[in-house]
């Protein structure tokens, strides 16, 4: 294990500035079920990647591997120079730098919006409370809900909750943001307000990996679109090419289904 760490570190030294996530020949199984098959993916700094694919294709599992909410069994994942192994220090380090937004928001219902946002800065980054609250208010302003700071999550609409969840991740000042289907639990009229926040965020140069079915978002924001099916990456390309000229049969089928309904 330490051997591969060594190699990973050396490689990082050569193109450390460019590549922030390197997934190399990664496999994952749920029991007998092979969910992720030979995933190879390099993400450069500031890159916006949209991952799409039919349900059950392993796209959520893949991005959950990046902050080790799921363990992979084979291959390496190196995030910002840190290889993900069983080493708890490394896991903590990666999680400090990687923000994640969930499909079902996962806000803490017993804490106010502001407390949700300050919790991690205070307890993980050891930021003083006042400073943490200041930062939190900044980000809440950026997602345009500073006036809800003292309400509880249950009092907000779905769209507002998701924006709080985004602000909560941003408060840790992450270098990488993972979005796991952030809009699929929302009503149509709320999707836009969340996407707007995400688009604005993208323009600021943060690295983003986003699992979503919002093809409009992919077209405007993504540097690269990845299509997954059956646990493997079928195709990856720049959005223009991806949508206009898909290479693979399965991609074509998927796109025709998702764009024609």
């Amino acid at each position: 294990m330490s051997n591969s760490t060594q190699i990973g570190t050396e490689q990082m030294n050569t193109d450390q500035d460019n590549i922030v996530i390197r997934i190399n020949q990664m496999h994952k199984w749920y029991g007998q079920f092979h969910v992720l098959k030979d995933i190879n993916l390099d993400v450069t700094r500031g890159e916006k990647i949209v991952i799409c694919g039919p349900s059950g294709s392993g796209k959520s599992t893949m991005i959950r591997c990046i902050n080790r909410l799921e363990e992979h069994q084979k291959g390496d994942i190196i995030v910002d120079g840190t290889e993900l192994t069983n080493d708890l220090k490394n896991i903590e380090a990666v999680r400090r730098e990687v923000g994640m937004v969930f499909q079902h928001f996962n806000l803490f219902p017993h804490l106010t919006v502001l407390e949700n946002c300050t919790l991690a800065p205070i307890w993980v980054r050891k930021t003083p409370r006042l400073e943490a609250e200041e930062i939190a208010m900044q980000y809440l302003e950026r997602v345009k809900i500073p006036d809800q700071a003292n309400k509880f999550p249950g009092q907000l609409s779905g769209g507002q909750q998701q924006r709080v969840a985004i602000a909560r991740s941003l408060c840790m000042k992450p270098r990488i943001m993972l979005f796991d289907e952030p809009t699929s639990a929302l009503d149509p009229e709320m999707i836009k307000e969340v996407l707007d926040v995400m688009i604005e965020l993208a323009s600021e140069g943060i690295t983003m990996l986003c699992v979503t079915h919002e093809m409009g978002f992919a077209k405007t924001v993504a540097d690269r679109v990845i299509f997954m099916d059956g646990g493997e990456i079928i195709e990856e390309n720049v959005p223009q090419e991806f949508f206009d000229n898909p290479q693979h049969e399965r991609t074509k089928l998927f796109l025709s289904q998702i764009l024609n309904h």
């Binding site: 999680r95 990687v98 079902h104 996962n106 803490f108 919790l119 993980v124």
Partner: peptide
């Protein structure tokens, strides 16, 4: 809900 554990893990707690 499991999401609560995941969210706090993802934060690095």
């Amino acid at each position: 809900p499991k999401g609560q554990f995941e969210a706090s893990d993802a934060m690095g707690l």
